[in-house]
């Protein structure tokens, strides 16, 4: 941008790679104006729309709910849409953006999340309700709902998955995102198959594969804690039959009002 400007500039270093034309990834630098309130996504957009239209990345909602724009910024996975650019610059005014690690690169900052979605499918992310459904809603206490909040707000952005060193070693591992989803289903009083779920998660690719490195917690843009969910699933797997029995008991009362305390 050659226009004189009162704004300082930031240097945005971006890893570029088009497997159809490039032998290997390389870094490219762009300059953008550091206007007040600019996010990292705004900077990428400015580059794409006015400097190099071939720069490729995913984005949609721009307020941290759709999960499209997770990237590797200055060595850490995060959503770029709610990341202020000025907070991400080093003292030389530079930011470095790469695609999410451990995943095949489709083009520039766009990665192939196939293994991520396959693991999501593998845990059967849908609720399996009891055979009998009431005319109205299943009754759940506010406390039962609160216990699920730490999983239901997951936006499936992949920041945790691609920060996990176990995922880096093997794509057989179910991964923190899908284990968190499994946790959501296992903990839901309406789910009729928690025992079968826990048995599935109990294998070599499941809850015991986690080495509690905590990268997933650091990476999660929604401040969720997949490690704790995995830990809980491990404990429940140990007492699977008792947990299953308790669920059967709970489901006998799913159509009844929660008693007042």
């Amino acid at each position: 941008m050659s226009n004189p400007s009162t704004h300082p500039t930031a240097t945005v270093r971006i890893q570029r790679f088009n497997p159809e034309t490039d032998a290997k990834p390389h870094m490219q630098e762009f300059q953008v104006e550091l206007k007040p309130g600019v996010t990292v996504l705004d900077a990428l957009h400015e580059i794409k729309t006015h400097q190099d239209g071939s720069l490729t990345f995913r984005r949609s909602c721009r307020h941290a709910i759709c999960g499209s724009c997770a990237m590797h910024v200055n060595g850490k996975n995060e959503l770029v849409c709610n990341a202020p650019l000025k907070d991400r610059l080093d003292r030389n005014g530079r930011i470095t953006i790469r695609p999410l690690p451990y995943l095949p690169i489709i083009k520039d900052l766009v990665v192939d999340r196939s293994s991520f979605w396959e693991q999501y499918l593998r845990v059967k992310p849908w609720l399996m309700p009891p055979a009998d459904t009431p005319e109205k809603e299943f009754r759940m206490s506010p406390e039962e709902v609160a216990a699920l909040n730490s999983a239901e707000t997951c936006i499936m952005c992949g920041a945790c998955y691609s920060s996990c060193q176990i995922v880096g070693l093997t794509k057989e591992y179910i991964g923190p995102h899908a284990l968190l989803k499994a946790f959501l289903r296992v903990m839901d009083p309406r789910d009729a198959i928690p025992g079968a779920r826990l048995a599935d998660l109990d294998g070599a690719d499941g809850v015991y594969r986690c080495r509690t490195i905590f990268n997933c917690i650091d990476a999660c843009p929604k401040n969720l804690n997949p490690t704790l969910a995995i830990e809980t699933l491990r404990k429940l797997a140990q007492k699977r039959e008792a947990f299953e029995q308790a669920r059967i008991e709970r489901q006998k009362h799913l159509d009844e009002p929660i008693p007042a305390r």
């Binding site: 109205k136 809603e137 009754r139 506010p142 039962e144 839901d188 309406r190 789910d191 929660i258």
Partner: peptide, 13 residues
């Protein structure tokens, strides 16, 4: 019934 996690009233609705 499909599993949507709604907020609840004290009696579970």
């Amino acid at each position: 019934h499909m599993g949507c996690v709604f907020s609840r009233t004290p009696d579970g609705r």
